[in-house]
Design a protein around this nucleic acid. Sequence first.
DNA 1: TCATAAAATTTACGCGCGCAAACATTAAGA
DNA 2: TCTTAATGTTTGCGCGCGTAAATTTTATGA
Lengths: 343, 343
Amino acid sequence: MTGQKIKNMEDFAAVSGISRPTISKYFNDPESVRQSTRKKIEEALEKHNYRPNIYAVNQNRRQTKNIGLVVPNLTDPFFAEIARTIEGLIVEAGFNPLLLSSHGGPDQEIANLDSLRAIKPAGVLLAPLGRASLDKQIAEFTREVPTVLFDANLEDLGEAFFGSDNHQSVGLIVDYLCRSGEPPVFFELKTPINPNAYKRRSAYIAAMERLGHEPQLIQVDGQGWNFEEIGFREGGRVLNSGQLLTNTVLCSNDRIAIGLLSAAFESGIKVGRDDGAALRIAGHDDHPFSRFTCPSLTTVSQDYDAISASSVEAILSMISSGVRIEARKETLFEGKLVMRGSA
Amino acid sequence: MTGQKIKNMEDFAAVSGISRPTISKYFNDPESVRQSTRKKIEEALEKHNYRPNIYAVNQNRRQTKNIGLVVPNLTDPFFAEIARTIEGLIVEAGFNPLLLSSHGGPDQEIANLDSLRAIKPAGVLLAPLGRASLDKQIAEFTREVPTVLFDANLEDLGEAFFGSDNHQSVGLIVDYLCRSGEPPVFFELKTPINPNAYKRRSAYIAAMERLGHEPQLIQVDGQGWNFEEIGFREGGRVLNSGQLLTNTVLCSNDRIAIGLLSAAFESGIKVGRDDGAALRIAGHDDHPFSRFTCPSLTTVSQDYDAISASSVEAILSMISSGVRIEARKETLFEGKLVMRGSA
DNA sequence: TCATAAAATTTACGCGCGCAAACATTAAGA
DNA sequence: TCTTAATGTTTGCGCGCGTAAATTTTATGA
């Protein structure tokens, strides 16, 4: 850094020997200026490390480079990983991701959208809470800001939806469980917060009927996002009540399964697929921790690389084209069976 | 919403019947205007839902209301929970938190600080990666922006540090393990990324010597933040090598312990503190998942409510006073023993 | 009712930049 | 060397708001 301080673009234009409008062009797209002037600018940049004032830039640009990313619960490593993936894609595309977590609460979800509104994002990627979401306020938001939903669908909201094909993925694991042992019961919350849970329920029922088995639902009480806790508490109750008419349990998601595994362990019930085991437990999602449960958890992985990539692609194309999508599309990706020790 | 559209503060001043400078005063502090005019403004606000342009505001304010929050890895639920707590405290104080994760990489950490710089935050709370952190660049940042470190310390960087008293907490669990069974070996990474790991190592050695036992370190290879994976892989190796001279293992953190538990299970080694068990395993941190391992993990909890509250308090007082702290202070909080099934 | 302090208004400037129009310069090919 | 398109420069406006100074209005209490 030499001599005088560079306070603004005009100062920087002076020291670099290039006019301010050209400097402005450079910062909006380095490719848009001639090679020789680009070199001059970047040489000056090394000496003076000037950067445009982001507030002045955003005040004057027709559109910001911000893309909002709202997930239901960052405390859940599953969403933390998705968020990380999506953030990377957004940065790669030259945009600025803003990550917000709704912490499982609909009010926080709306608050997140409100603070995004203040930032005038070019677009928003929203993984909504689901059933608890305040539809009307979200609808109002999606009217103002181009929004793509992912993970959990809210009917007709947003420009598009990308998620998992629960029907396929649950069918996959029900098939596997049935052909490798007793048909599973379905262990879930009575009133889940997540729309995927309802789809998984009906997918389970459909798969069982297709295979000629009687579907059996074990629906337990429990609110909120502390699934492990619920799986542990209610699972323990179920295991000790003699309520279980089969030796195979399919959980609505991995986090419930993790709780149930813990409860089985405490009750001295051996879980696994080998002969000595008394119980098989399977989950859904391929949660980051499911490899390290005891035994490791057999589950179905979601293709969230595809979900992430498609969601980002969709919002970027809307932004660059400047037009809202004419017909809302829902795209579902298939899951893959992940065989481990628990079933 | 009635009639014309409110585009800016001047429009809003017109419809509310109050002058623009007074409106401006109101938004910067609603208490600073007379009750009667405040009422007028808020009535108009309900009709027209105007909000000041955040970019124009921040361009002109001497200081923004932004507070940056950088954590090493949001994928780790431990940090996700801390982040959530801190975010809440920042919002309560009327500031705007900006959460960034370094994803375990020093380059990302610097990139995070760079993008924070662009936002001109009033202050930053930084939980650094530790050993991998690029000290010089962080030092440069802390010179420009008031920064408080927490969780992991970097010598002399930032205005203050708040963290856990590893010496006390490790001493606590070593004491417990020694009086309830065989003295523990210490299971850790050979070259940990986190400075806390080094403190825990020396705390373990000190505690063992104090109790008249020979310290034993098992130091395994492994890079990055995938602690469960390392604990599983290397732990399995150690368990099957006959290298273990005691039946008690204290892990440097819970995530390693989770991996080790999984490895023990796979090897058919019964873990627990009752008579039938062959191995005791303890961790450190009280990770959110440690309640649901099999068996549940005995560990030491960090007082991160205190760490969060103190860190936020420190940065807020610096912001409001406008002065940097004269002498850097390091404050450590005590951990608590969390007895569960594994040891 | 009046003096006085507190609050609001009027007026005006500046923040740092995007953007557009008119004009000047440069690079590339015939 | 000349033409032409591409690229830069000059000039100037406007974005929406913070903030300051001078002035006027309002509230408060004796």
